[in-house]
Amino acid sequence: MSDLSATAVFRRFRWSFLAPQHWPTWLGLGLLWLLSFVGHRLRWRLARGLARVYRRVNPRRVGIMATNLALCFPEESEATRARWLERHLVLHVLALLDLGRLHRARRGELTEEAEIVDEALLERLWAEPGVILTVHSVGLEWAAAMLAETVPGSTIYKPFAKNPVLDWWFAGMRSRHGTLIQPRDRGMKPHMRALREGKSFFYIADEDLGATHGVFAPFFGVEKATLPLAGKIAKATRRPVYPVIGQLDEQTGRYRLRLFEPVTLPATADREAATAINRVIETMVREDPVQLMWSLKYFKTTPPGDEDRYRH
């Protein structure tokens, strides 16, 4: 299967998607489409209400958020971390409600509606493609789609194994402007090829993929399983590494693409490389901590002898 046909498979509609078991999914997607036509203030009020509901119906996930914040920011007061968690919940839900806008947007519309920091670096990325090192932030989907409007590239796609309708919907949203999406099990070869051909690679570097694929390195002072490949990929393809994060302004509803100066990372797959990557991520996160997707288990894998950090 060629790279392009792999993307096409994700985007192919099947009549089986209309089966009754998928009707709740279609209802949810229909509501997102309707919300794409209403103003930000209404979506924001709805997000605040749903965030309160989320706290009540999913205390386990909220506990993961609180644990992550406590591990990463022990120097902050409990009250500060609680405020951050509240703000993050609202931003998280608001970004989900914005998916309809994202899916419906015409080419160029996302760039017009976003704030760029800084534009000189974006122009450099256009002229000199490279590894776009980013994280699971509330503005991730918007940032990826916006960059795809003007920066040809590729990215790794994690399928929704139990919901083919969501697979089709998200893949269409992520690839509609030309981004080459590849499932994780296809490895790095398609993305290395794309980089050598003058495209960029949208690389999400913060996820814990286990000790088999990663190495332990400090992340906000806590040992974390990290995949130390960014520097190695950059050297092999002779491309720069651009740290980028997508952010969301709760008050205005505008998304912000924040670009940082290109970094040079160790071209190895060891603790030194993993530490360097985590330091770059820390710099992006510290600017506005509520933007990171704190619901993920960043410290799921523990060094031998350590206890489960999420046990309550």
Results as ranks from 00 to 15, higher is better:
V165F: 11
P183I: 03
R174T: 03
A143W: 10
D206F: 08
L257G: 06
T268I: 07
E250I: 14
F216W: 05
D249F: 12
T268V: 06
L265F: 13
P228E: 09
L195K: 01
H213N: 05
E207Q: 10
E149W: 09
H213D: 13
D249P: 12
D206M: 11
E250A: 15
W168A: 00
I181T: 00
I233C: 11
A171Y: 07
R193I: 10
P218H: 04
P159R: 04
T212C: 08
K162N: 13
E261R: 00
V215K: 06
A236Q: 15
D208N: 03
G210F: 02
T212D: 13
L209P: 02
D206S: 10
L227E: 04
P159T: 07
R254L: 09
L248P: 07
R239T: 10
D208H: 05
R239N: 11
W169M: 15
M173F: 04
A171C: 08
W168M: 08
K158T: 02
T212G: 08
M188V: 14
H177M: 10
R176P: 00
G221S: 04
W142C: 04
A194Y: 04
T226A: 12
G153L: 13
H191T: 01
W142V: 07
M173Q: 05
P266C: 09
G210H: 08
Q251G: 09
V165A: 07
E141H: 15
K158P: 10
A230Q: 11
I181Y: 00
L209Y: 05
V222C: 01
P164T: 01
S154Q: 06
E250L: 15
Q182D: 13
F170G: 04
G221N: 08
A148N: 06
F260L: 14
M146V: 10
Y203D: 00
G221A: 11
L195C: 13
A211W: 04
V241A: 06
T237E: 01
V222L: 03
T179R: 10
V165H: 09
A194S: 02
P152S: 02
K189C: 15
A217F: 00
L166E: 01
L209K: 06
G198H: 06
D208V: 06
R186G: 07
V241S: 05
A145R: 00
A267W: 06
D185F: 09
H213Y: 11
H213P: 02
G187H: 11
N163R: 15
T252F: 15
R193G: 07
T150L: 02
T155I: 09
L147T: 09
I233N: 08
K199Q: 13
H191Q: 13
N163D: 08
N163K: 15
P152V: 08
V215R: 04
P164Q: 10
E141C: 15
A236P: 14
L265T: 07
E223P: 12
P218I: 01
I181H: 01
K235T: 11
A267S: 01
P228K: 04
R176W: 05
P266M: 11
Y242W: 01
E207M: 10
V151R: 11
A211Q: 01
P164A: 03
H191V: 05
M188I: 15
E149H: 03
T264V: 13
P262I: 05
K235S: 12
M173V: 06
I245M: 12
L227D: 09
V151I: 12
K199G: 14
A217M: 03
